[in-house]
Amino acid sequence: MTTTMEAKKKRTEMLVEMRKEHRDTVQKAQELLKAQQSTRKVLERALTGGPHSVPQLAQAVNMPAHEVLWHVAGMKKYGIVAEAGTDESGDYYLYRLTKEAA
């Protein structure tokens, strides 16, 4: 038990040290993370209403379609969204939240 506690303490100290050493890049990355988490939340909220195409999502969240596509591609890669057929025109794929993400 003591060994585990010590290892955990050592790890925390190392991470603190790393954050100090890489202060500038950590700050930038933290800002990016905050913005990204907020965008993903908005996209996920829109998708709880049902499957959306990229242009539909772009309209729903008021974001350029190419940016939405970038997020959707990443979310698909990491299993947060999945394809759900095409829209009525047949021009666009629809995306839905996966069971795990929902």
């Binding site: 990229v54 379609a65 190419h66 596509l69 666009y92 794929y93």
Partner: peptide
């Protein structure tokens, strides 16, 4: 194969 501007086929 989707186009990068909006995901259209």
């Amino acid at each position: 194969v989707l186009r990068p501007s909006d995901g259209k086929m």
